[in-house]
Design a protein around this nucleic acid. Structure first.
Lengths: 225, 225
DNA sequence: ACCGTTCTCCGAACAGTGTTCGAACTTCGA
DNA sequence: TCGAAGTTCGAACACTGTTCGGAGAACGGT
């Protein structure tokens, strides 16, 4: 509608918010969450600490912005790998997403830890908030890729509507990827002894060969919990 | 040797160190790493903040103690499950360790995040330090239990000496467990929709059925990377 | 039992933090 | 043009981790 009627104040505000987030993001990458400080950000953008409160209500608010921003970046990296591998073998397409997930984590370990583990004292992500929708954007390419490997199209995209068995299979797959990446970027993979990328690709391809649901045999197993 | 010649100062020091760690541990459990403060601990044990420096060189030092302490607690919980299930079916024994690992994480999520993810600004665990040996104590019961399920005894206990294929299989197993537990305690498992314990036990039993090395069939597959 | 060394504890201080308040100043929409 | 809204700032408050110097107590050796 009135997209053209953006006052110079509105534009300046938008740019300043972006710069603040960028500065905070850099401080985060350099020294972790403990390194991003309100006064430090204000110093770097060249204004009084009190003025920052015009744009963010508190330090927790700034971190919330960093979290959603990082979720979007991760989702973008995985989504890009998914798009770029269109037409490839379904398994290779999923593996492309796997590599993209790991590559982003290796490149931005602080951001990765920030979005996946609770690090702030009293912080709790608001349900239906922007962080959860950004998080789901990360899962989406994986759901689509796995759906392709099983010839089920995008029938897995609506995770909440799936039967428990499918949910478990998908979460097991993603949990393996996430766990190994987590261990690697936090230096728990015997650095110098284990090759992270080789390990992750190896286990994910292995898991893909056995994760498919049983077609017809052994239907006597317990259907669910 | 001179174990009996413990001066009252030595005893008092030992007890005070234990109390300091206990207080800090409680503050950690209540509000995460950002909630444990030097002055807060001093306040709670009833002495001047400067006096604390008699027992710990810095806040990072205190956190190092918390990390090793938490590693020992986790290793103790898993080891206890391993010991208590002596004589049971090997698979059940491993599942007992799995449940113990998850149960401890659910009971102490802040400590779990503290030991597995880098959260302190400039902190780096000293190699050959007490934290890494405490960490290996966590892996040990799992290595022994998996060795049992494969009828290989404790031949997997010396992880670094294993061929790459075995290392990958073991890390894949532990990575799945660790990743799913991590997702659960950080509220990424669609709380109220997915049962964490059921999911983890389900995926670990599934993985155990397919993780064994190929005996004789399909030996034409690529042996290693 | 003494004495010198060592350890323990404390008050004060320094630099840094997140946040609030009130007052100036600028920009906006009508 | 005028009132309202938005922006910036300095000062202040209550914190934080850490250092320093001194006072007092407990220790080991003679």
């Amino acid at each position: 509608m009135r997209a053209s009627t953006e006052s110079r104040r509105d534009r300046q505000r938008r740019e300043l918010v972006a710069e603040i987030i960028a500065v905070a993001c850099r401080q985060l990458d350099e020294g972790g969450p403990g390194n991003v400080s309100w006064r430090g950000v204000a110093r770097e953008v060249g204004m009084n600490p009190a003025s920052l409160y015009t744009y963010f209500a508190s330090l927790d608010d700034l971190f919330t912005a960093l979290i959603t921003e990082s979720f979007h970046a991760l989702a973008g990296a995985v989504g890009q790998a998914f798009d770029d591998s269109a037409g490839a073998e379904p398994v290779d397409r999923l593996l492309a997403c796997v590599r993209a997930y790991r590559a982003w984590a290796v490149a931005h370990p602080r951001r990765f830890n920030l979005i996946w583990t609770d690090q702030l004292p009293g912080y709790a992500a608001p349900p239906e908030g922007p962080t959860v929708t950004a998080e789901q954007a990360v899962y989406r390419p994986f759901l689509l890729a796995v759906g392709e490997t099983e010839g089920r199209g995008d029938r897995l995209a609506e995770f909440a509507a799936l039967p428990t068995g499918d949910q478990h299979r998908l979460l097991g797959l993603f949990g393996t990827l996430h766990g190994l990446v987590s261990l690697e970027i936090n230096s728990h993979l015997a650095p110098g002894l284990v090759d992270g990328e080789a390990l992750i690709v190896d286990r994910m391809t292995h898991a893909l060969r056995h994760v498919h649901p049983p077609r017809d045999s052994s239907s006597a197993a317990s259907p669910d919990q």
